[in-house]
């Protein structure tokens, strides 16, 4: 297994994971328990990221405005961060703590913005922050921006909207949507309910556990994704694959060994 970097703080008892919940109905305490049981690392659920660090909403609104992707085929984010309207809307979103639909944010820029908010004493090896964000994030990879479920960084970001929107839905769904463009998507999704995730889907907590585990692997210096379709760490590009891999709740042999190793380090 590829090891990304050496964690100089291995075997310390100070290792901790902070989870910052979102407005979605996800059982964050359950995710925390799962991470602690699986990896042996103490996991704490905090309040919403911006509330916890009591950030100035005007400043955050300005930063989020700058992170907006206005053209998915262009690597450059639109230079509208000083636009009065965009700032107003971003302030409203921060105030309401509601999901932001229809907009993609540059994951690297968002992570960089969040990183600046985290105090220096919490920005060290052994402390891993996982922020659940109700916004769609993506990175530019050669041809266009691609939406992601997770962005492993300091802090790691799990996009709740990305869980529903980023992995592709079954091909039949898109064919059906093209044939019925004006039928509400929720109606079409009913037909595929076992094969796709919907907003506030009850399975999301279980699926988010595996995604959070990917970030923990990354924070411990391992490559976070697996190529085995049945492994909980599988890097799924289709929703069907994501549901199957996460609902199985199993790890492949190699990742089971790695997780065991991490757990032993934190005993």
């Amino acid at each position: 297994m590829r090891r990304l970097r050496k964690n100089s703080f291995e075997n310390t008892s100070e290792d901790i994971i902070y989870i910052y919940p979102s407005s979605w109905d996800i059982q964050f305490l359950e995710i925390a328990r799962f991470l602690t049981d699986t990896t042996g690392i103490r996991t704490v659920v905090r309040t919403d990221f911006f509330e916890h660090f009591k950030v100035d909403s005007d400043n955050i609104a300005r930063n989020f405005a700058a992170c907006r992707v206005f053209d998915i085929f262009s690597v450059r984010c639109a230079d509208v961060h000083d636009s009065y309207g965009v700032l107003n809307i971003e302030k409203e979103f921060i105030g309401s703590r509601q999901p932001v639909y229809g907009v993609m944010y540059d994951a690297n820029m968002v992570a960089s913005m969040l990183r600046k908010i985290i105090p220096q004493d919490e920005k060290k090896f052994g402390v891993h922050h996982i922020v659940f964000l109700d916004r769609l994030i993506g990175t530019y990879t050669g041809d266009r921006y691609h939406a992601h479920v997770v962005h492993c960084s300091v802090p790691s970001i799990i996009s709740t909207l990305g869980l529903v929107q980023a992995p592709a839905r079954p091909r039949e769904f898109y064919a059906l949507r093209n044939m019925n463009p004006y039928v509400p998507e929720e109606i079409l999704l009913e037909k595929f309910k076992d094969r796709v995730l919907t907003y506030n889907d009850p399975r999301i907590t279980r699926i988010a556990k595996g995604i959070a585990l990917q970030t923990v692997l990354w924070a411990n210096g391992y490559y976070p994704f697996c190529k085995h379709r049945t492994c909980k760490l599988y890097d799924a590009h289709w929703q069907e694959e994501l549901i199957k891999s996460q609902m199985s709740g199993k790890l492949c042999k190699m990742h089971a060994r790695i997780i065991k190793r991490i757990k032993n380090q934190h005993k």
């Binding site: 053209d71 998915i72 509208v80 107003n88 809307i89 979103f93 639909y101 229809g102 998507e185």
Partner: peptide, 23 residues
């Protein structure tokens, strides 16, 4: 930036949510 085919899902929600004082 002009309107675009950026992220089609929930576009109706996005239009209502973004309605506001632009200047």
């Amino acid at each position: 930036p002009g309107f675009g085919a950026m992220w089609v899902e929930k576009s109706e929600d996005a239009v209502v949510e973004h309605t506001g004082e632009a200047y």
